[in-house]
Design a protein around this nucleic acid. Structure first.
Length: 805
DNA sequence: AGCACGCCGACT
DNA sequence: GTCGGCGTGCTC
């Protein structure tokens, strides 16, 4: 019987990023297993932390007295063998702490909350009890220890044994329960009781009759009350008389009421779709770890290919995982999958409450759900026996997590496909260059859907040169051509969608006399005007202040907002087209839970003529009556110092164009731009992904960028700019001799937004083709900079970063 | 992270 | 002399 547990403790630092050995108390030796959470003492004080058991055995390299596990949190492992292996791989490949990775894979409620408490002892004097405890059994340490003087007093009291410090490790996970009703007496006894009830007590008789029909089963109180027509008060009486027992029945929080979902049937596939399904299903059956690139224009029916492939995996008794970007995870999308697979579907996304996420996670782990649909983190869903992984819109940057662990869901999906020997399907109309290049080399197998379902032609696209427009007409967000088209749609009772490319282009306040721009005091970035709260906000640190009435610099009153936000566009459009009914969708109007869906439903049911929004409207929405799509500012992202700017612009334009003319009516797209000759815009006009791919590959080849090179970004930040810069140059000197000569190191350079939250940022980018020792080198780097990190320097490593700013 | 240990300046 | 500042090392 294993006596020693190797435990990963919940202390995310470089020094503690390894297992610690603990004695397993003999009473628990048969039940502690790898993957369970435990509470262990850690450190010289009385600190207790949560940890994950990685292994159980009888050996340790530690030559000292082992401490014992304090308590066991789980009855069964929450991380299975696959998850434990994945944790180790994820930590190594993203340069993050193992404990952080383990926690990332689980619902947030399973993360422990810690409380440091003070408790009285039997030596506590009346005076201290009066001062600190007021008769309570414990008080929060931090609430009392607010001043240095208070801290030293507490330390003295602790030394004198008058108070005790105690750490409480709290499990946040709560199971939702409803009240159940169960008979407490046998049927015979209940019959006996019936004879003693006063005649005319109809409800009590009904209750007794009802109890007799239960057959020892438990019914929810609600159901019982309805079925036998007895009130809760009567049931309470029955409980008091000892006829019945109330119990707690565990229920799942159901985020989508399954009741009103209409079942859907598989659609007839066209030839291309059928070929794709056949290939995928063959790989599911084999099983083979083939990675497919399913490349299909918008409207070519990729989703139906996914659904029928999933059906084949389920038919084989296997499970399936379907990843979609957060913004595509709309109620329509969920309905479509649930309509096909019903209760077998679990949905994981950020809109769920933490309790709902936990319940969905448990349904998956208990094998009550075989299909999981979810955003990025759903890639960790605890599905056993995986038969198929699908990643829709694989080029979406939201698949990469922005903070530690900086993983890309695609990499995790590929890892899991190796583990389960199952295929992966990467789907997109505009695949990332990396993926498309791998398909070119035969690493991935390419499946092409060139035709739109029903053979609808792609919408025609007009490019509008805003430079000319500006010269000939007054400054406006709307070109004449677009306005005429909008007017035309209003008259024909058709709908329009307008997209404002918000990135780096929101409203800021500018003084027309001296040119002063209101900036964040903590960050090198202008503050954004928010009309809903009437404040200026920083989008990086959250700083908020009042809108200035006079210029803080020259005291002029000519201080106005400048630039274009969705609100301003809406206002201008309403002036230009007073009769139009407009819905605006942006971060402000969709922040509330369910607001997103509500606005889309309103638009879909024809309650508005025009939908204005940011990038969020480009994805997945499918309204047959939309015949016009306008992109107000196509090129705001093109000017950004990022080699992926063209790729993103092309993808966005192609995607938003796909919103026009999805049913019988043909669509038209207007793209307003200041760079009408830019290749990203030219290729988007002709829906020419292949042309764009070839051209962009040349650009990447010349620039030495992915997919020709791999990249790693190292960021250092410090409150003192000189320190950040100096350390970065030292780091460069340290790094150079450890990398192969063909590797290119860019930087150090200050980040384009050099200061965020009072910290100064510098970055180095490593571009390499082959660097076998990179993992080791960078891990060493993190260890060697420990002392500096303690002194306030923050160092971060991002493997294959998606944003270079 | 959080805690103890340990070594220097201004107070009872 | 002691209290308390924070730099350094360690946590099974």
């Amino acid at each position: 019987m294993a006596q020693i547990a190797q435990v990963l403790v919940d202390v995310p630092t470089m020094q503690t990023n390894r297992p610690y050995s603990y004695q397993i108390p003999s009473a628990w030796q048969s039940q502690v297993q790898p993957g369970m959470r435990v509470v262990v003492p850690f450190g010289r004080g009385k600190r207790r932390v949560q940890g994950f058991v990685l292994a159980c055995n009888d050996v340790t390299t530690f030559d000292g007295d082992l401490k014992a596990i304090d308590s066991v949190v789980d009855l069964a492992p929450v991380l299975n063998q696959e998850a434990l292996k994945l944790t180790a791989w994820l930590a190594a490949s993203t340069f993050s702490f193992q404990i952080t990775c383990a926690q990332t894979m689980l619902p947030a409620v399973m993360r422990a909350k810690y409380e440091k408490l003070l408790r009285p002892t039997d030596q506590t004097s009346a005076a201290i009890d009066d001062q600190i405890f007021h008769g309570q059994t414990s008080v929060d340490f931090d609430a009392i220890a607010t001043t240095p003087a208070a801290v030293s007093q507490l330390l003295r009291l602790q030394a004198a044994g008058e108070v005790e410090v105690y750490y409480q490790v709290k499990n946040q996970a709560r199971h939702k329960t409803v009240v159940g009703v169960k008979a407490a007496l046998s049927v015979a006894d209940l019959k006996q009781v019936e004879t003693t009830v006063r005649s005319g007590a109809a409800k009590q008789l009904a209750l007794l009759n009802g109890l007799q029909t239960l057959n020892g089963e438990t019914l929810t109180q609600r159901e019982f009350s309805q079925r036998f027509d007895v009130s809760e008060a009567v049931i309470r009486t029955g409980e008091q008389k000892g006829w019945l027992q109330k119990t707690a029945i565990e229920v799942y929080r159901d985020p989508y009421a399954t009741a009103n979902i209409r079942p859907t049937k598989p659609l007839k596939l066209n030839d291309e779709q059928q070929v794709a399904v056949n290939q995928i299903v063959a790989a599911v059956d084999a099983p083979a770890t083939t990675t497919f690139l399913l490349e299909g224009v918008t409207g070519s029916g990729k989703t139906e290919v996914y659904l029928q492939s999933i059906a084949a995996a389920l038919a084989k008794g296997k499970t399936a995982l379907m990843l979609v970007p957060e913004i595509s995870l709309t109620p329509q999308m969920v309905q479509r999958v649930k309509g096909r697979f019903g209760k077998a579907v679990a949905v994981l996304h950020s809109g769920l409450s933490s309790g709902e996420k936990y319940d969905e996670w448990r349904r998956i782990r208990r094998h009550e759900a075989q299909v999981v649909v979810g955003a990025r983190s759903a890639v960790f869903a605890p599905l056993d026996n995986l038969g198929l992984i699908i990643m829709d819109e694989e080029h979406e940057s939201s698949y990469k997590q922005d903070d530690a662990p900086r993983y890309h869901a695609r990499q995790v999906a590929l890892w899991r496909s190796q583990y389960h020997h199952c295929p992966v399907v990467l789907g997109s109309a505009t695949p990332s260059l990396e993926t498309r290049a791998r398909a070119e080399k035969g690493v991935y197998q390419r499946l092409l859907l060139a035709d739109r379902v029903n053979r609808r032609p792609l919408p025609s696209v007009s490019i509008i040169d805003m430079k000319q427009e500006m010269q000939q007409h007054a400054e406006s967000n709307f070109s004449r051509a677009l306005l005429v088209a909008l007017q035309d749609r209003l008259e024909r009772h058709e709908q329009s969608v307008l997209m404002l490319n918000r990135r780096g282009y929101s409203s800021f306040v500018l003084c027309r006399d001296c040119g002063f721009v209101l900036k964040c005091p903590n960050c090198d970035i202008s503050l954004t005007l928010h009309m809903d709260t009437h404040t200026m906000k920083c989008h990086y640190c959250g700083h908020e202040e009042a809108i200035p009435k006079v210029c803080p610099n020259c005291h002029s009153r000519q201080i106005r907002y400048y630039g274009t936000g969705t609100e301003k566009v809406e206002e201008e459009l309403q002036n230009l087209l007073p009769d139009a009914r407009i819905i605006r969708m942006d971060n402000d109007t969709t922040r509330k839970k369910g607001a997103h869906a509500k606005l889309l439903t309103q638009f879909g049911s024809g309650e508005a003529d025009i939908l204005i929004g940011t990038q969020m409207i480009a994805k997945g929405l499918d309204f047959p009556n939309v015949t016009l799509v306008g992109v107000l500012n196509a090129d705001t992202a093109l000017g950004l110092p990022d080699f992926r700017a063209s790729e993103r612009t092309f993808q966005l334009l192609t995607q938003v164009s796909g919103r026009a003319g999805r049913a019988e009516k043909s669509g038209h797209v207007y793209i307003q731009t200041f760079n009408p000759d830019h290749y990203a815009i030219r290729f988007a006009k002709h829906h020419d992904y292949e042309g764009f791919f070839k051209y962009e590959m040349q650009m990447r080849h010349q620039g030495g960028y992915p997919p020709y090179y791999f990249t790693v970004q190292i960021t250092a930040s410090d409150l003192d700019e000189a320190v950040a810069a100096k350390r970065m140059y030292q780091l460069l000197q340290w790094l150079k001799p450890r990398l192969t000569p063909s590797t290119i190191i860019l930087g150090p350079t200050p980040k384009p937004i050099a200061r965020v939250n009072r910290r100064y940022y510098y970055q180095i980018v490593i571009k390499y083709k082959q660097e076998p020792n990179l993992e080791h080198t960078l891990t060493t780097l993190l260890q060697e900079t420990q002392v500096q990190q303690r002194q306030g320097l923050q160092i971060g490593i991002d493997v294959e970063p998606l944003h270079f700013m």
